Computed example of a mutant assay.
Amino acid sequence: MSEPLLVIDVQSGFINEFTHHIPQRVAHLIGRGEYAPVLFTRFINAPDSPYQKFLDWHSCTQEPETNIASELEPWVKPEVVFSKLGLCGIPNELADYFKRHCFQRVFILGIDTDMCVLKIAMDFFDIGIEPIVLTDCCASTAGLQAHLAGLAVLSRNIGAFRLREAGLSEGFLAAPPDKNRE
Rank of each mutant, 00 (worst) to 15 (best):
C137P: 12
L6A: 06
A142P: 03
G171I: 13
Q145F: 13
E93N: 03
K179T: 12
L163H: 12
P74D: 07
G89Y: 13
L55S: 14
L29H: 02
E65T: 01
G167A: 11
Q62F: 09
C138R: 06
S155F: 05
L87R: 12
G159M: 08
L5E: 12
S2H: 04
R164N: 09
R156I: 03
W57M: 09
H101E: 07
R181K: 15
L134I: 15
N180H: 13
S49R: 05
P37S: 05
A95Q: 10
S83E: 15
M122T: 12
G13A: 04
G159T: 08
V133D: 06
S49A: 01
T19R: 00
C102F: 03
V81P: 10
F103T: 05
H28K: 15
A36S: 15
L163K: 06
R32P: 09
M115A: 15
N92H: 15
I158R: 00
I129E: 04
Q104H: 10
L134R: 14
E3H: 03
S49Y: 13
G159K: 02
H28C: 11
C116F: 02
H147L: 09
H28F: 09
C88Y: 07
V26F: 11
E165C: 06
E73Q: 07
C88Q: 14
A36V: 00
F18S: 09
H21S: 14
G150N: 09
A166R: 07
G110N: 10
S169Q: 12
S70M: 10
I22T: 14
F161G: 00
N157P: 02
P74Q: 08
P176H: 07
F82K: 00
K77W: 08
P131A: 14
S59N: 14
A36N: 15
V10T: 08
I158S: 05
R25N: 10
C138M: 05
L144T: 14
V76Q: 02
F14S: 01
T61H: 06
P177W: 10
D96Y: 07
P176T: 13
L85M: 02
R105L: 11
I44C: 00
S155A: 15
P176S: 10
W75G: 06
N157R: 11
P4E: 03
M1R: 11
E63C: 10
I111E: 13
L163S: 06
E73Y: 04
A139Q: 00
I111F: 01
A36R: 03
K53F: 04
F82P: 02
R42A: 07
S169M: 10
L173Y: 11
V7D: 11
A139I: 11
G143S: 08
H101K: 04
H28D: 14
V80P: 00
L5W: 07
V38D: 11
L151E: 11
A139V: 12
L173R: 10
V76M: 12
P177E: 05
R42S: 02
L163C: 11
G171T: 10
S83R: 12
I132A: 00
F103Q: 06
K179H: 14
F14L: 15
R156P: 03
G159N: 10
R25G: 09
D96S: 05
L118T: 02
D96H: 04
Q104L: 05
F103P: 01
E130I: 07
M122D: 11
I22A: 01
I111W: 03
A175Y: 01
R164T: 05
A146G: 04
F124Y: 07
L39E: 01
